[in-house]
Amino acid sequence: MLLIKKPEGQAKIISRTEEKRILHSLDAKQNSERNKVMFLLTIKAGLRAKEVAGLRWSMVTDATGEITNAISLTASICKGTKGRTIPLSKDLKQVLQQLQKNSTRIQSFDPVILSARKTAMTHHGVVYFFRILYKDNGLIGCSSHSGRRTFITRLANRIISVGGSLRDVQQMAGHSSLSITQSYIEGNDRAKVEAVNLI
């Protein structure tokens, strides 16, 4: 896939190959399950670093404690004044279930992501985690926002084929306007050529 150059200052998009390499690299690390959840919360659900740090089990479980099919973010951890709901991908649901299974005495208000000291991870801790993760995998230009940009771009590229629109992408991203959502989306030169040839 050919991509146009990203605007200056924006986090780099992660390719499918890079995503697989990162997930494979996490298998060999301490806190592998937690780290996979952190990575997939950004690339499969578009969460910001602040939202990853603020996520509670009550936002991903039902009344019986089972992992649900969607993340229900509350306004308290989102940017702006509204919460939002994001459907859970199969991959993310599976790693959340594994993390939950291997955690002890979880309460609904407990953070999903804990530091090595078993305390709530801070926003800055999440940002640092991603800086080291991408550096260790040789990815230049990536930051804690790369997964989010990747999620929004991939979603925008697929949403119309399943009957959705950019408005759906905007809602899942938690943006106040479509113009903000559009600024996150990476262009695709090949798609442009194919689209023009269909006219």
Rank of each mutant, 00 (worst) to 15 (best):
L55M: 04
K44E: 15
H123C: 12
P87G: 09
I113P: 11
L55A: 01
G83Q: 03
T85H: 05
H124V: 09
K44T: 00
V127D: 09
E66V: 11
T104V: 15
V126I: 15
K44W: 01
Q94C: 02
S76Q: 14
D110A: 11
Q97Y: 04
M121E: 05
G46C: 14
F109T: 13
L55T: 10
F109Q: 10
S72M: 10
Q94V: 08
R56P: 00
L92G: 03
E51F: 03
G65L: 08
D110G: 06
I77C: 12
S89L: 14
L92A: 01
P87Y: 14
A75W: 02
A53Q: 07
T119P: 00
V112E: 04
E51C: 06
G80D: 01
S115P: 04
T81N: 06
I86Y: 05
R117E: 07
E66L: 14
E66M: 13
D62I: 15
T68Y: 06
Q97V: 08
T64Q: 15
T68L: 09
I113H: 07
K101P: 00
I86G: 07
S76P: 03
D62P: 12
E51K: 03
K118S: 08
V127G: 00
W57A: 11
Q94T: 14
V95T: 13
G125S: 03
N69D: 14
F109G: 02
T85M: 09
R84N: 04
T68E: 13
V127E: 14
L73N: 06
I67R: 07
S89G: 02
G125A: 02
G46Q: 10
N69R: 04
T119M: 05
L73V: 06
L99E: 06
A53V: 11
L88R: 03
R84A: 00
A70L: 13
